[in-house]
């Protein structure tokens, strides 16, 4: 095994590209992305479905060959030194690729064998990880009987069996209930504390906000923004008001209300839960005046929410659209 000094980025891509199809029908899924993830960092890779997140992960874990550019994981080229990369990574793929006919313990022990754990250590290593993810009671049941959250926890435990340098989690909480999601978040925090590099793809803003040291936002195969969540949100700056008018208001009313509100700031595309959205310079200090202006114009405000900048605002500013999971991931933070 080649020795690598710790200054080497855990993940590094230069102009990484992947196209599908041939001749006239070429689809570019990943379009020349540059990423650098430091050892021990949790990197959140955020984007809507079809943005290129999973294609990027599949290239980084050696399941898909890049059609252009370079990618190195743990210092090794994913195309030319794929075997070395595979020894150093743990992977929990989207939709937890588990064998539903096997029990949790059987799968853990198989995974240990696949990663060359000495036979005398297989049982103990599996036991430790089963306990770590809280599956002791279910370990001898077939995985087909597990809930979605249990499957994801088992998948995560399997990815950790050989203590990987870099862990890839591809949408680990998609489709999970809030409780299971928080359990997985706690585990990711623990891994970060232990110094594991984590590359986490997600379509949930809250998840990236809660877990990631840095976030890369991908849209249509390109990185459109990168930085810490705080940096990215600071770039957007101003908060906005989401306004819902009383029942009976129609498109004409919304258009007239937008005109009225123009003096406060920029009009934004409303979310599905409100009728109007407008940026405000002074945040809460503007609320009373907004209500008064609308009232003077003959509108009745049913609800009004002051929203501080989120990663969805960053996404909106960079791409003009909302993230699909923006509304789904509202989970109470645990830390």
């Amino acid at each position: 095994m080649r020795n690598k000094i710790s200054a080497v980025p855990a993940i590094e891509t230069e102009g990484l590209e992947r196209t599908f199809g041939s001749r006239g029908r070429v689809l570019t899924a990943v379009d020349g992305i540059d990423i650098e993830v430091a050892p021990g960092e949790v990197y959140g890779f955020l984007g809507p479905n079809g943005a290129g997140k999973t294609t990027t992960v599949r290239m980084l874990v050696t399941l898909l060959r890049p059609t252009g550019g370079l990618a190195r994981v743990a210092g090794f080229d994913v195309a030319r030194e794929s075997g070395e990369v595979r020894r150093r990574i743990g992977v929990a793929l989207q939709e937890a690729a588990l064998d539903l006919l096997m029990t949790g313990r059987e799968l853990m022990e198989l995974q240990a064998t696949l990663h060359g754990i000495a036979p005398r250590d297989v049982h103990d290593r599996a036991t430790n990880l089963i306990e770590r993810v809280g599956l002791e009671q279910a370990q001898d049941r077939r995985v087909g009987t597990y809930s979605g959250g249990m499957r994801r926890r088992l998948d995560l435990a399997m990815a950790l069996i050989h203590q990987p340098e870099v862990l890839f989690l591809d949408e680990p909480t998609t489709g999970l209930d809030p409780t299971s999601r928080v359990t997985l978040w706690d585990e990711v925090r623990r891994l970060k504390h232990e110094g594991t590099t984590v590359f986490l793809t997600t379509q949930y803003l809250e998840e990236a906000d809660q877990l990631a040291d840095r976030v890369g936002i991908i849209s249509a195969g390109k990185i459109v923004a990168e930085g810490t969540p705080t940096q990215l949100k600071a770039e957007i700056g101003r908060p906005h008001l989401d306004i819902t008018l009383a029942d009976g208001a129609g498109e004409d009313d919304f258009a007239r209300a937008r005109e009225v509100l123009r003096r406060f700031g920029e009009d934004r595309p409303p979310t599905p839960d409100c009728h109007l959205s407008v940026t405000v310079e002074r945040g809460a200090a503007d609320i009373a005046q907004v209500v008064r202006v609308l009232d003077d114009a003959g509108f009745t405000v049913e609800s009004l929410d002051l929203v501080r900048p989120t990663l969805d605002d960053v996404f909106l500013a960079k791409t003009g659209g909302h993230l699909e999971g923006a509304d789904e991931a509202a989970v109470e933070p645990t830390a």
Binding site: T62, R86, L93, A97, L98, H115
Partner: peptide
């Protein structure tokens, strides 16, 4: 079902 990917990504 994706289990093949698990094998393909293992250093075997």
């Amino acid at each position: 079902l994706g289990f093949f990917d698990r094998l393909a990504v293992a250093p075997i």
